[in-house]
Amino acid sequence: MTAQVPGPPGGPAQDSVRSLLAELWRERLQPSRTGSGRETAAGRLIHGALFLTATLSAFVTIGIVLVLIFETVEFFREIPLIDFFGSTKWSALFAEKQFGVWALVWGTGMIALIGLIVAIPLGLMAAVFLSEYAPPRVRAVVKPILEVLAGVPTVVFGYFALVSVSPVIRDIFGQDVGIYNALSAGIVVGLMIVPIIASLSEDAMRAVPRSLREGAYALGSTRMEVSLRVVVPAAFSGVVASIILAASRAVGETMAVTIAGGGNPQFGVGPLEAVQTMTAMIVQLSLGDTPTTSIEFKVLFAVAMTLFVLTLAMNVVAQWVSRRFREEYE
């Protein structure tokens, strides 16, 4: 015991300490300690402010929908629905205007498809590798690299497509292939969405419990059999969801396809020709000074609405798949 301690614990000195404690409180404590007045005005104000910030996201959604619907309705007041959805010819900037959205959907679909063809094998293999084969140290390096790759600006990928990929494609398929073509844009879009598939699928695969793997190993399976026949099927919903999300991202991808895809809204063209996606069309019309009352301005929103509905549907489906088909493990 040092000098500061007034007495042995438990003795009368403790009582004085205790009464001191009580006295300290009695003197200094604010009154009104009863009743329900503690959720103060300030507390309620903060609660309300936080509530508002949370509802802001709902307002953003409402704002997007309203903005899109408003101009889209304006557009369909001038152009009948059948000319938009029933035609495959697009020539918004010519004198004789045609607004067949299928020309843009074709380009979008083709690039997304090429992207998925590139990304699904790469992404899934990366996921299987990371989750089943990679030692922790390799994983600790590769995973952050994938994350950084996911953060590379899309305009950089556009540059890459134009300057690096296109010349290679021209070397392979002949010089009559244009610098701007769907294939090069699709390949870089594929590279872009590899991290999404790899990262999300890997999460799903790691969520498969060890016991399942050990059960398969105990039957004498090889590591590959465990990976492909046990882990991948068990994580299937997550894998599918990741692919749908990646597809949605490919559909909404803008800058790379604007730079490398060319500006040729044509229905039915092949992968070695220039195409135009919905997003690229929006950029093209945004770059010019389009008067806000013109039909070109309004069609911007009609196309954006189509794009919005398409990607939203894909996201919802992805969420549904991952929820609906998720295997529940202990």
Partner: peptide, 16 residues
Amino acid sequence: NISNLAGVPSIIYGLL
């Protein structure tokens, strides 16, 4: 809603 907003293409935010 938040997770759906994260999936909206960025160009649509531009139009908003």
